[in-house]
Every structure is written in structure tokens, then in C-alpha cells.
Design a binder for these strands. Sequence first.
DNA 1: TGAATCGATGTTTTT
DNA 2: CATCGATTCA
Length: 743
Amino acid sequence: MLDFEKLLNKSQLEAVLQTDGPVLVLSAAGSGKTRVITYRIANLIQKGIHPYNILAVTFTNKAAREMKERIFKIIGSNANGILISTFHSMCAQFLRDEAENIGLNKNFSICDSQDQKNIVKQCLNKLNLDDKKFIPNVISSLIGRAKDDMISASEYRSNAEKRGEFFFITVGEIYEIYQKTLEESQNLDFGDLQFKVVEMLENNPKILAKFQERFKYIMVDEFQDTNYCQYLMIKLLSGKYKNICVVGDDDQSIYSWRGANVENILNFENDFANTKSIKLEQNYRSTKNILKAADKLVKNNIERKNKTIWTENEVGEEIVYIQTQSEKYEAEFIAKEIQKLANEGYSLNEIAIFYRTNAQSRIFEEVFRNLGVPYILVGSIKFYDRKEIKDVLSYLKVIINPNDTINLKRIINLPARGISDKSIDLVESLQKDGDSFFDILTNIVMGAYTEEKVPNRLVKSIQKFHSMIIELMKNANKMTLREIINTVLEKTGYMQSLYEDNTIYKDSRIENVMELVSAAGDFEETFGDVSLEGFLEHTVLINDIDKLNNETQKVTLMTLHLAKGLEFPIVFLTGMEEGLFPNSKVDYDKNELEEERRLCFVGITRAMKKLYCLAAMQRKIYGMTKMHLPSRFLKEAGILDDIIDKQNNYINPYAKFDDYINKYDKQNNNNHYRYYEKGEKFNENKVFKKGERVKHPSFGIGTILDFYGRDDNKTVYIKFYNGIEKRLILKYAKLEKYISYLE
DNA sequence: TGAATCGATGTTTTT
DNA sequence: CATCGATTCA
């Protein structure tokens, strides 16, 4: 028996023991919510609840896996049968289990956001719409949001018609065709997985009753990130026994642009009668200094549940703020600092570097590679998103389900086998109701059409392709995953085409495809699942971060979004600049600034011992060098004061942004660090460069003409405004940079 | 059909 | 700056 009273603090204990009825756990960052969830599950099982009746939902596979590991560590095989899963994997599983009862093909494919975008593009073509006006990215995200909100295509359209909004009426039309395309190809997108489950539960009382009976106890992690559809699902599933425990933190809601609805957590008590609310406010992760900054920052948000976050941890080190000349020196500074930290005894996997946008990772990779800092980059281009991987996966999907037209069309002429886009159009024109694309191919092969309708040459090409697919389908049953993939690579000529490819991608593509084969092998070993279906589902629903393991001696690089749920002793928050973070693309009027601020809060609260905040004065964005002021968040968090001294003609960066930008000397690109720490003046500079204007306490303002010597003897040659030219020992000269914005 | 070139475009992205 | 996609050219 576990002694919960010893293992948990008062509120944690309360949350663990309160097993029945709706429970809302508001857990501040680092307050041990995973601990609560795992012990709560342990408690349920100890009380005699069968694990089969327990469901725990998370958002990432990593979180799910960690939770499983921790539970099995605590109570071992007693936990067998428990369902700990992400919303999406869980839904995919439900749908496959119930496929027959709801008229779904059990072998449906799941398409990712890239596929979604491509399908939208196809729909635009069909409807003859301008993709400048109806940007595929925007449309697919609108469709995604609609599904999150449980709005079907027809509803979407009729809603728009009621409002008389032309743009959205058209979006509705696209949505309708998009949905038809998916259905015909027996594909589900991420939104569908959940939408269909809710639909299934709403329309089939028997199925609903079965699920309700099974999941007597339900727990949801990161509840602030749930969307309306997920919320409904949870409400339905817990409808009978009402043993629903949700855990979340409204201050860490950073996915509203993905349909997450903070209201779900804010209104939980109103929506579930007799909710027991528990607050976890003691932080076990960070030092007082770090926590103070995070708390100070997030208090600037108006829309939040009021809570105090506190810790008994040590005060710890001051937060370090560094401003560098450019993004390159930002990276170099960090590299050197990492070296220092490593010498102090920190291991590299204790260090993380966060940034707002993926583009920022590039310079870190470059600098770290040059300086030999081992790093692991999480996110950005995901392995399974790569073209060559998607190609091979498309083949596999077609082998499982030849009616998957979306993927069939993707690979039918890849490598080229004489079935061009025109040929595809021709084949489609022969389509009759109920026929899939593959059915028509079969008909053509069977000789159902005359030479006039389908030219002989095309029939031959299609025959070859068709028999190849049939052959692969037959063999797939008898082979291991690895063998299947290897056979596909060989028989389809795809591997051959990679070798014949003479672009710069050749080597990496071959390498990646090999990697896929070994990933399939790993999958067989780890999951003991040898089914192709299982592997394919894994490839769509898994994310890079899921593979992140803490064993490797490498520094972690990732976006702030990916950082949620993780913790590191040392954290570097980079690119803390106005325009970048908060990002200038967010709509400040639509509360999106508050979400940026929460993102910053998430970043700060990842740090356990030491936090560095970095900003670059200038940064290349899309090839253009732009000047940036330090982020307002630094000021809000009390990390950076009003550092610009008005007496010295320096303006307050938070007051006159444009002035500062316009008048900054853009020629400035000498190679030195230019940084100052908290409390120091903006003009703190030990290094000067030729042509720069300086201010001397007695001689006044002048221009640097040249330098002589080095180190302590370094002499500077200055021509002052009153005509006097002087040679001065730099070390003793008490020079300041002189930058006037008032001229 | 494939290479080549031009030009538009670029916030974050659990699944 | 770098990438992707569409159009054009061979």
C-alpha cells in the first residue's frame, strides 16, 4: 500500500483521494500535477477499480508514455489494461473498433496537415477558385477549427449563408468538397478522428452506453488545451458515472490558434455540477527568482484565474539578461556559456534553448556545429513529413486500402510510369457512382474500355501498375514490416529512382528511406505490433518530441510551444525581442498578446536553476536585417528595467520604438559581443569600432579614426568635434558610445 | 516529361 | 535568405 500522506502535499493529497465526482485541479506550473495524476490512478487501482475502467487522456504521446511508465513503476502489472492515450490515438482506436457499426472502413487512413493542405488545393482547382484569395493554409485551418467546434460542412455553409458572408459561403463549399474527397478516399483528418467519435457517441446510444460503462473513471491532462469537440467527448464519456478529473492551468494555454478553448477550464465548475476544485500552488521546480519573474509577468494578463504560485526552493541565481549585437552573437554567447556550464559540471542534457519561431534554430545549428556543441533539434521538419517518407508511406497506405484515392494518386506516377496528370483526369472521367479510382483502374485492366476511350499505351501502363499493387497486397500478409517496406522500395522502382536522382537531396533521401526501414524494425520490437496498419497510425500520430530521450549528452533546441510540459535545470530564452516575441504577426487587439505572454510564462517556468534571457539588437529575418528592441516581457517580468538613460539621450525603448529603429546606425556590424546585464546602462560597451562616435568625459564627443596595439595597451585614435585629435589608452579613456537619436 | 528558372512568400503547430 | 510551386523551355 502506498502511503499517500507521505508522498504528497495537502492539496495534492486531496486531489488524489477525491476519486469520485467531477474534480477540477488547477495546477500551477511545476506543482507536481503528473505526480497527482499518477498517484490518483494508483489510488483508484488500490481501491479495487479495475484498470480497464480507467481512462487517462493526454495531448502528446510523450506525456502518455511517461505517465504509463510512472504508473507501472509504482504499481507494476496491477495497472494492466488501463487506457492511457492521446485524444487522437484513442479516437483512432475507438473508430477502428466500432468501424463496422458506423459504416466506416476499418482500414481508413489518417491524413496529416500537409495532406489536408494538398486536398484543399485540389478542391480549389475543382471549384476554379483563386488560391490567392482562398489561401490553402487559411482554408485548411478554418476547416480544422470548424471540426474542433463540431460544425459540419453543410452547417458551416448554411451558417455563412445566414450571415450572408460570401467568403465563408465559399469556404463552406470548399469544406463540402474537401469532406467528400476524404470520404471517397476513406481518409480521416485529425479533426475527423474526434468529430466522428463524438458523432458516434451522440447517434448510437448503445455504443455510448458501452463506453460509459467501460470508462468509469476518466482523467484529462492539460485540460486548458482541449477544444469544444474534445470537451463534448469527455462530457459524453463521463456522462453516466461522472467521475471526471481534469487537470490544467489556464496560464499555460498556448494553443488557442489550434482551436483550444480556455473556457473549458474556466467554466468547468459551472458545467459539471458539484465539482470539487483543488488548487496546486506550490512549485517544486524552480528557484524563487525564476518563479517571481514568471509570476510578475503573467499578472499582466487580465483574463486569468487568480492564483498564487510559491515555492520553498532556494532564491537561486539572478536571471541573466544579455543583449547581443546580432543573432549570430546570441548563438555564440550561448555556445560559450554552455562550455562554461559544462566545466561547472552541468551535463548537456540539462540545458535547453527555446525560441519563438523555427527559423531561429538555423543559426544555432550553424554556430553549434562550428564550435562543436552537441545538440538535438526537436521539431521543425518532422521525419515523417519528409517527401520521400510520405511517398513510401503512401504506397503502404494503398496496399492496405487501394480505395485510398488520395494516396493512390500521389504514387501512381512516382517514379514516372507513363500515367500523367492528363491520364489521371481521363481515368476520373470514366468514374461512375460508387466506383473508387482503383475500381476504374481495375475495369481498364479488365479491358472494359475501347481503344478510343483509353489509348492502348495507357492501358499497358495501368496494367503494369495495377498488377504490381495487387502483387504487393498479396505479399504483405506474409511479411514482416521491414520486408514489406523493402519489397515496396524494390518492386515499385522507388529506390531505383532515388539512386538516379541527381539533385542535392539524393543522399539524404536514400538515408531517410533507410531510416524508415529501421524505424519499422524498431516499431516491431518496441510495440510487438507487426501490423502495417499499426505502424502507419504510429507514423501519423507520433511526433518528434515523443522520441526525445534524456539520456543523450546533448543540448536541446526547440520552440517554446514544444517546451510545455518539460523542465530543464538551465534554460536559455532566446530572441526576446519586440516583433519576434511577442511576435508582430499576432493580433494585439484579439487577446493574442496575452497568449504570447503565456507562452513566455511557459518558457520561464521550464527553468529549474538558471534562466538566461537573450535579445539581439539586429537580426536577419528573411534576408533583411531588422532592428529590434528588447521584448516588453522582459520588463513585465522585472528582468529588465527601463535601461535607457534619458540624460544620455537614450530613449526609453518602450516609449519611442520607431525613433529608435529609424535612427540606429545600420552599418553597424563589427564582430564583438555587445551586451549588458541587468541594471547596467545601455551604452555599456567595452569594445568600439572604427568610425564610431564616442563621448569622452573631458574632451567631449568625437569619432574613432583608428586603433593601435592590443589588449591592455590598446590605443584609440580619436578626432574630437572641437578639432583636437588624441591618442588615448582605451583602458583608461572612460569612453562611452555616443548615439544620439535627437539630431 | 523533366529540368530550369522565376517569383511569391515566410508565427506558433500536441495529433 | 531559402524554399516551394508554378510556369516555361528544351
